[in-house]
Write a protein that binds this DNA or RNA. Structure first.
Lengths: 346, 346
DNA sequence: GTGAAAGCGCTAACAA
DNA sequence: TTGTTAGCGCTTTCAC
């Protein structure tokens, strides 16, 4: 009747060791409360070893209702170069607690997401993580409520979920502080801004938060921004277009706060075309710390998106003994000091 | 006794519909061989709907010995920006066949890999994929043999596994053909080569294969390479260092075949510093087609690593009705024509 | 100290 | 056409 060649079971081990299945179960699950004779334990362990016994976690789950398995569904993080770190972090934290991870992507389609979550739920996952490629507000599927869950790199409006997001506002503050420390006062220009585009008319979470931090520190120092070039963050060309003209003007900016490394790359390209050198003629500070930052010449000072740490935190929270509590956790964004900032000269 | 609030089961549905559990099972699993009265079917479906019945796949698996679940373990693909496409491809193919994917990374540590595979096996996965970040030969863990499996982006020496890899040699041929088509004959220089470094004294699979393709087409056209700069592929600076001197020489190359986009970026940087323009003064063709290729000015013609397709194929093969057969599948690498190639002028 | 027996939710012979 | 019954491999109560 068994449809396929079956593996060694506890029953086999019991037979081999000359004890009952119950005893085997106790010994193999390492329970101390039932006292088993040292001799029986030895025989059982020996038999298990010899037969190459491996527990069938599927059967175990059916009984215990714990699968030691988590589900992670994202819109599209695996496809986003650096966001993969979130998965790695989640994985690490899960493994440390002996859990495995189902991973899937919805591509942003709610119907697809529901189907994926359902698949995971049907497989009795112990918990769920909903991850987003870029930080923002999301409305998690109803199914998320049927199990412990946490929102990774996104916020919800209800306030009923555990959310883990980068501390963008503080990052904005840091960016400006780096420039002020180097002696910049006037001529500080922002590239990217809130990321106001047709697709994102209100801007984007990271943009709004970073700008808030940037403006707060400037105000606090009694200074004003030289200007803000609102533009699409998606590719270097937009950064290039935003600053190309500025660089040839007589009152050109001396420092740029770029909302991500791609825009900073565009600024570098524009600088090259204008015969200007970074950081001698203009300082640049950026966000994200993608590999691009270290590839650029000179290498780019950037404030990192703590992808890995976000992933770790999300799973740690999910698997914490008390379970995830409704709250927003903001993870610090580390500053990576490199070679793109110098004192203004002129 | 139930440790946690239990979900709706088939028994509940049966009670509600006034039939036996068997009948419910037949109806819900959509089997046609047992004829069920239209009326009973209606009542059962209605009850299931009303109660919000969802199958417990864990229980189902225990009986059927199929979990509709696959395991994918890689060395470190999620951390490698573009290799994430492999995961996406694998995911897509799995979903199309109603399978979910366990995903994990070993970080290249064999002990960690064994542990991960064991965890998946204990959870009764139906099949296994072993993925590698960069193409090459690997010795898969013994456990891989205990289930159907395929090697993704890597080859094994035994020849007993199904392997899916990019067709690097053909890509090498294509790269040179692009240059020849544009009119280049002499002055074609390779940057990167086999990737001979301290860590990779024999070079790297992609390097060897690409070079083979490059040299074959050159020979076939009765031409010789202007030169090959063997260097580390890991960052633009190596490409920069490799060509900086060449560009100022009187007999400077007029076309570069760069072994990846990062090296090509280094060549662009060097060109900028030498006051040379791409593609007017020098043509560049590259491999990988990372985002960098489209960010560069002018955008870079590159031969893409078909990550997604690799992932798709691997899982399709794994889930094919006959199961994976020992063989090496080479996936074509698509050419992305952009703006970095022009006729040589001089 | 150890074992018999029940049951997790589902499938599938077999009988009715 | 439908129901009875026996497991899948494991945990756990309760009795010996």
């Amino acid at each position: 009747m068994p449809p396929s060649p079956s593996r060694v079971t506890q029953a086999d081990v019991a037979r081999h060791a000359g004890v009952s299945r119950t005893t085997v179960s106790f010994v193999l699950s390492g329970r101390e409360d039932m006292r088993i004779s040292i001799e029986a334990r030895r025989r059982i362990l020996g038999a298990a070893e010899e037969l190459g016994y491996r527990p069938n976690l599927t059967a175990q789950s059916l009984r215990t209702r714990k699968t030691h398995t988590l589900g992670l569904v994202s819109d599209t993080v695996a496809g986003t170069p650096h966001a993969g770190g979130m998965i790695q972090g989640a994985l690490e934290a899960a493994l440390e607690r002996d859990h495995l991870l189902y991973f899937a992507e919805s591509g942003g389609d709610p119907a697809a997401e529901r189907k994926l979550l359902q698949g995971m739920l049907d497989r009795q996952v112990d918990g769920l993580v909903h991850a987003a490629m870029s930080t923002g507000r999301r409305r998690p599927s109803e199914q998320m409520r049927s199990r412990p869950c946490v929102l990774l790199n996104c916020l919800d409006d209800s306030g009923e979920f555990t959310c883990v997001v980068p501390d963008e506002e503080e990052a904005g503050r840091q960016a400006v502080r780096l420039l002020l420390e180097a002696g910049h006062r006037e001529g500080v220009h922002v590239v990217g801004g809130r990321h106001l585009t047709d697709g994102t008319p209100e801007g984007v979470y990271a943009g709004r938060e970073r700008m808030r931090g940037v403006e707060a520190v400037m105000a606090q120092a009694g200074l004003r921004l030289g200007g803000v070039s609102e533009c699409d963050w998606s590719a270097p060309e937009h950064g290039y277009a935003a600053v190309r003209g500025l660089l040839d003007s007589p009152r050109r900016p001396t420092a740029f706060v770029c909302c991500n490394d791609r825009l900073a790359f565009g600024v570098y390209q524009a600088a090259c075309d204008s015969g200007l050198a970074v950081p001698r003629d203009l300082s640049v500070v950026s966000f994200d710390d993608s590999e691009l930052a270290s590839w650029l010449r000179p290498s780019l000072t950037s404030i990192a998106l703590p992808h890995r740490e976000l992933g770790r935190s999300a799973v740690s929270l999910l698997l914490s003994p008390e379970g995830p509590q409704p709250a927003v956790h903001r993870v610090p964004m580390p500053v990576r000091r490199r070679g793109s900032i110098a004192a203004p000269h002129r």
